[in-house]
């Protein structure tokens, strides 16, 4: 199953859908996806690097590199590789405007 994003789902495809939004665009993922899997099923990156031009999409998937932090419309940033996606999450790849 090929997605618009980065990942290819190879197994465990029969899971109930979960809806969330990314930069205001409605997206869907599957129950049990991490936030990282959910985002990369629809998009090519989770954030933009503060130190260079490249977008970032995680690196270690095991909580060691902290490359995968993603913003929420409200509430704290999430470490996408270790946080499960939840129905109604509103995520964004850029910091909210009022971020100092």
């Amino acid at each position: 199953m090929i997605s618009d994003g980065r990942i290819v789902r190879l197994a465990e495809r029969d899971r109930p859908p979960v809806r969330f939004s990314l930069d205001g665009v409605p997206c869907h993922a599957l129950e049990g996806d991490t936030v990282l899997t959910a985002v990369l099923a629809s998009a090519r990156a989770v954030r933009v690097s503060e130190f260079g031009p490249e977008p970032r999409a995680g690196f270690c998937l095991m909580g060691a590199c902290q490359d995968c932090w993603v913003w929420q419309e409200e509430g704290p940033r999430l470490r996408a590789c270790s946080m499960p996606i939840a129905e109604g999450m509103r995520l964004r790849t850029l910091p909210p405007e009022d971020w100092p």
Partner: peptide, 15 residues
Amino acid sequence: GAAQIALKAQGVALG
């Protein structure tokens, strides 16, 4: 390791 974790824990390839 990330490639393996994606496969094992999520059933996906990262590309």
